[in-house]
């Protein structure tokens, strides 16, 4: 009774408490702006935008899985397979370029679908099912490419190019972010994901098709991962077999820094975007300050621990 009374009218304190990652991001940007003249320049910001786009798009899809109390470790591998198959489709097999992006998206969604089925019908924990898919899919990528890079199709390369002054990856990120937020908050898919993640048994006893929801969120995660993979390959004009290796960890970090709970039932697309930006800005800033990449890893780890630690404390206070 007492918690909600506070929420009724806007107050700055609760807004800040609920958007810790955003506050952190702003502080970070101000600090870097003071520390180095190179940070707040057009080219550098575009650079950050391009760098963040892959992780952000991947993390948008992953948010659905995490909201539904699952985890998807396969997104990095799925990104690689999608990019590879779409490149193979046009460059190696000579099939029409017009649908190469769709082919990549379909591969991503199918991969996610399989993970979801393993988990929903095979009763594997999502951690295990997606861990299995991580290596299966990476292996398939090597099989398809025979271990060598393949040039991307023209339409995939277009995804990595600029549209006027604005890089395409940033446009794609904004558009997919809006779509993801809409689907998560307004559609039955998103609302079901929240219910299943919040309390699976209560959702099931209310007639919500829990298994179908699980399969759907994994398919969404795979779809977004596939798109992220093609964004990345498009920038390089080639699909590498080792593309996006380890990206799943950054994507999970972005979702979690953004305020989602690995226990499920909580998560926002805007939060995930902020989480991805925090990671990208830190990397960029440390580069500008010439901090060695070895130390960068240490810093990123500390940031993840701090961000989630603050969140745990905040939640505890809310529930007194």
């Amino acid at each position: 009774m007492n918690a909600a009374a506070k929420q009724r009218h806007f107050d700055l304190k609760s807004f800040l408490a609920n958007n810790g990652a955003l506050v952190g991001l702003v502080v970070l940007c101000i600090a870097l702006w003071i520390a180095t003249p190179h940070f707040l320049t057009g080219p550098n910001l575009m650079n950050i935008g391009i760098q963040v786009s892959t992780i952000a798009v991947m993390a948008f899809g992953l948010t659905f899985v995490i909201v539904a109390a699952g985890i998807d470790l396969s997104v990095g591998s799925v990104a690689a397979l999608s990019a590879m198959v779409s490149a193979y489709w046009t460059t190696t097999a000579g099939l029409p370029d017009g649908v190469s992006i769709l082919v990549g998206l379909a591969v991503g969604a199918m991969s996610g679908l399989v993970t979801g089925m393993m988990s929903a019908y095979g009763k594997l924990p999502t951690f295990i099912a997606s861990l299995a898919m991580l290596t299966i899919v990476r292996g398939l990528t090597l099989v398809v490419s025979d271990g060598r890079p393949i040039s991307t199709s023209e339409s995939v390369s277009f995804l990595g190019s600029n549209l006027g002054p604005v890089p395409m990856p940033i446009i794609v990120m904004v558009v997919t972010g809006l779509i993801a937020a809409f689907v998560l908050n307004r559609t039955i898919i998103g609302k079901n994901a929240f219910a299943v993640g919040g309390n699976t048994e209560a959702a099931r006893l209310s007639g919500i098709p829990v298994k179908r929801v699980l399969v759907t969120v994994f398919a969404i995660s795979g779809l977004f991962a596939g798109l992220a993979g093609m964004l990345l390959a498009g920038r390089l004009d080639s699909a590498q077999p080792t593309l996006a290796t380890g990206y799943e960890l950054d994507a999970i970090a972005a979702v979690v820094i953004g305020g989602a709970s690995l226990a499920g039932g909580v998560g926002r697309i805007s939060g995930t975007l902020v989480g991805a930006l925090v990671l990208a800005v830190i990397r960029n800033g440390l580069n500008l300050l010439s901090v060695s990449s070895f130390w960068q890893q240490v810093v990123i780890g500390v940031v993840i621990a701090l961000a989630v630690g603050f969140d745990v404390i905040r939640r505890k206070n809310v529930r007194h």
Binding site: T187, I188, I189, K191, N192, F194, A195, G198, N199, E201, A202, A203, L205, S206, G207, I208, G265, V266
Partner: peptide, 26 residues
């Protein structure tokens, strides 16, 4: 443990059984 999604709102908890049936185009 079986009846409610505790983090969700009162409205959402009341609505779970009708959410699917009343949705249109998803």
């Amino acid at each position: 443990t079986q009846g409610l999604v505790l983090d969700a709102s009162v409205a959402e908890n009341i609505g779970y059984a009708t959410m699917g049936a009343t949705s249109r185009f998803g």
